[in-house]
Amino acid sequence: MIEVRNIQKHFGATVALDDVTFDVARGEVLGFLGPNAAGKTTAMRIITCYIAQDAGSVTVAGHDTREESIAVRQRIGYLPESAPLYLDMGVIEYLRFIGHIRGLDDPHLNTRLAEMIEVCGLRRMSHRTIGTLSKGFRQRVGLAQTLIHDPDVLILDEPTSGLDPNQIIEIRELIKTIGQQKTVILSTHILPEVETTCSRVLIINEGRIVASGTPGELTSRGEGDARIHVTVKGTPETIEPALRRSGIATEVRLLGADAGRVRYAIASAEEEPEERLFQLAVQNDWVLTELHRESLSLEEVFTRLTTQDVTSS
């Protein structure tokens, strides 16, 4: 649905995007993850035709953003960061204006308008002036604006910023529902958001894609040895030497010992370290009370990729 090929963008001497390439398929919810000023917003602005790239190409549903900008814009619903709106307009008046520009005829517009007010939870606020609304409701008006023409592609720049926890959950659910039939790109620096809403993640840092994959792939990628937590009945004096002798672990670290149990964190380079540990316990007649693999959280992956990579590249 969206094809981004080798785009580059400079602002003066600073490089905002450096040779970025990715695809987004229909029905995919792609999350842009990255620290502030990583290039997330710039990438979105290029796809939505707000700014033009210096090099490379972007096509949306087969239309080039530079050659057929209007065709691209017709297919996209875009919510810019912090949902800028005309503060002196009423909610309905604003959505009507957008609907007219989007080419909806009046009967169709009226049904869509009613739907949007329902879906975005704007019923109580529909007769207010936008300037009098709180941040959360402005965000919803912004979202209604992006959805009103039922676009194939949705581009949402930090859609949940400034919302309260309940609203965040609602908006995430909404994005998930919409994302089943549409193509969505959303940016965020809230990691749980990516885990709950996105089918694929791009981690961007300093204008480059440093990682891409499903949230699961990224966390299990693990970068190195598997880490296993194991708890056994016994004392450190008997358990630890046996663990070290077994050769399963490259690293053994005591996490704690109490009530006759010891807890270890083990790093292992083995394919199936759980299995070997279980067999070891059976051989030694240990009572195993815990055995699980620690997966690297998305947070850790993110921190590693966005801090290390800068120094190594």
Partner: peptide, 11 residues
């Protein structure tokens, strides 16, 4: 206000 971004990305 930043509304230029919305206006300029409308068709």
């Amino acid at each position: 206000l930043g509304t230029l971004e919305t206006l300029m990305t409308l068709p």
